[in-house]
């Protein structure tokens, strides 16, 4: 079994001098890019701070880094910070996992039966193009104004695209490979688990990556519609009472969380590619 590790370990092998120079060049280039990336971020915040400090831009409308830090402090002291982060994170992660699982399951069923696939094709196409936010009011009535409704929203947004991408990936498997499995007297479930699943692994990872973004859309949109807590709630609340510090702070925290989730998926991908 391969050990799962989040960070790569370096091998210690003695390579030639040319190789060492080559590797050093690669590493150097990598660090230059990292450095510039960080510099852009720092410059952005510094410029933001300086421009608002000297009154070139009005911090009432666009906030400023120092005011955002103060806002985070306030939220932390009042104990609300982790409540909001936790609520949104919980909704997003549960929505993400459920949507992926349900989408996968539907894709498997549709792969299994060609007849079902052909029957449901038009329904799926219509559901896919329907803007899911239009179902918002219905969801609130059916599931109540709370976390459940938001998770359902999140699932609705992710599930169809998950099914469509995975089904496409399952069906794109080479016919000759399937024939080969059949020549070994493989049963359908064996063809599925030994060929179709591993063959679609790359596409599954891309689906996960898409779903990371989509599930955040789902949970924040859900919170816009109906919520008593969460980052989406903070943004809407901040907007209505003109506390733009709150809006900006929540947005930045969202950026960080979404980035973190993407990073985790990317690590999982790297694990499977090795």
């Amino acid at each position: 079994m391969k050990k799962f590790s989040f960070f790569k370990k370096k091998k210690s092998v003695n390579y030639s001098k040319e190789h060492q120079i080559y590797v050093r060049k690669l590493t150097k280039e990598k660090w230059i890019i990292r450095l510039i990336q960080v510099l852009i971020l720092v410059a952005f915040f510094v410029l933001w701070e300086v421009l608002t400090m000297y009154g070139v831009l009005d911090p009432f409308f666009i906030s400023s880094p120092s005011r955002m830090i103060a806002t985070i402090e306030d939220l932390y002291v009042s104990g609300e910070l982790f409540l909001h982060i936790g609520t949104t994170l919980y909704e997003t992660v549960i929505g993400f996992i459920l949507a992926t699982a349900i989408g996968y399951l539907i894709a498997v069923i549709l792969w299994w039966s060609e007849r079902l696939r052909r029957i449901f094709d038009p329904y799926i196409v219509v559901l896919n193009s329907l803007p899911k936010i239009a179902l918002g009011p219905l969801i609130i009535i059916w599931f109540g104004a709370g976390t459940t409704a938001i998770i359902v929203m999140c699932i609705l947004i992710c599930v169809i695209i998950t099914t469509l991408s995975l089904l496409g990936s399952f069906l794109s498997c080479d016919k000759d490979k399937i024939l080969l499995m059949k020549s070994m007297n493989a049963k359908k479930y064996q063809i599925f688990f030994k060929l179709i699943v591993p063959n679609s692994m790359g596409d599954f990872i891309s689906v996960l990556k898409i779903n990371v973004g989509m599930s955040w859309v789902g949970s924040i949109m859900g919170e816009y519609l109906v919520s008593k807590a969460g980052l989406g709630y903070l943004i809407v609340y901040g907007g209505t009472v003109f506390k733009l510090d709150l809006v900006m702070t929540s947005t930045v925290i969202l950026c960080l969380l979404a980035g973190l989730m993407y990073f985790i998926v990317a690590r999982i991908e790297a694990h499977f590619k090795r």
């Binding site: 080479d174 000759d176 490979k177 080969l180 020549s183 063959n199």
Partner: peptide
């Protein structure tokens, strides 16, 4: 098994 195949492509499973 009745039939074994060899195709133009080897169709080895990369994983």
């Amino acid at each position: 098994s009745e039939i074994g195949y060899m195709f133009q492509r080897d169709h080895l499973f990369d994983w």
